[in-house]
Design a protein around this nucleic acid. Structure first.
Lengths: 161, 161
DNA sequence: GGCGGCGGTGATACACTGTAACAAACCCGC
DNA sequence: GCGGGTTTGTTACAGTGTATCACCGCCGCC
């Protein structure tokens, strides 16, 4: 689950997300269309990573079908604007919990029992990674770091049922 | 990065891989079947990450078709034995270049221009990641760290064509 | 007002990735 | 040879992502 202790305030709730997204788009002269809004809201509302098809289904209502391809386009847009992240190991998407410094590395903490995804960052990891890449003569363009395991809340729940 | 200077000798060649795989299997009482051998060879021969369907096609000959599902099973086996890695960001597979210490984190360096994948590791990154996870109250089960960028060889090639 | 371009959306089709289920073949110890 | 586990073949299918074309709405321009 998200908004876990240790991180109580770390996830902006859906309203904040939407407000931030609207501000970002206005600032950059981009359109924050209803579809994009809906997709972002769908991603932000559920605490866990959502597949594109899940989102499409969630947004579809009898009489108004939202095709996955539309969702993908909206997600591409949202990712370009840094409002949404993709979890490669899950083929799923989560809202970006907080504005990152541009280029800052993000660590995704994926709970295998509740499916919630938390974000962390570490200058230590980042520095070490940079030095490692440099030693290897490798110029990074972007990197993904995803950790699967058990979040604190789930671990407690398992110990004291 | 281990053995990898330009790129020429950077991939343990297929023969070494096969010999090591056979030894590992014998040691663990597992079968190193012809199919598994062929799949590992296909992964090891090409210097770059291979999709499961690419492998299937590569192993298929007129009259003898290898179905993707068979390739997946062989890959699952090879991954369990630590002989092959999966690149989540590419849905592709590479041979494990060298035996890792069990549980040791691996960093994948994926060249976006030549498609080659190199492996690196760093106690510094690993330590920092461990401390970050601990601070977050998160118990890791396994993690993936993949960096996309330009390898040294390709960067040189681009500068001086 | 008409016209053309441009970005966004809808819709269909398709390619790629991965898994389930079942049957047949194989191997090994008894 | 027989029984039981493992491996492979085969088919079908679920899930993920992209290509293509048509249409719409908007804005600037003539």
């Amino acid at each position: 689950m998200h908004r876990h202790e240790g991180h109580a305030a770390c996830h902006a709730d859906a309203d904040d997300m939407l407000a931030r997204a609207e501000a970002v788009c206005r600032e950059r002269g981009l359109q924050f269309t209803p579809l994009r809004r809906d997709v972002l809201e769908a991603v932000a509302e559920s605490g866990k990573a959502q597949g594109a098809y899940d989102i499409a289904e969630r947004l579809s209502a009898p009489g108004k079908r939202v095709a996955p391809v539309s969702v993908y386009r909206a997600l591409d847009f949202l990712m370009e604007q840094g409002l949404v992240h993709r979890i490669a190991s899950r083929n799923a998407f989560i809202p970006c919990a907080h504005g990152h410094a541009p280029g800052e590395g993000v660590i995704f903490l994926i709970c295998r029992s509740c499916g919630g995804v938390d974000e962390a960052s570490s200058v230590e990891v980042e520095g070490g990674l940079g030095r490692t890449l440099e030693r290897a003569g490798f110029t990074p363009v972007h990197s993904i770091l995803e950790v699967e395991g058990d979040c604190g809340a789930c671990r407690e729940r398992m110990q004291a049922p």
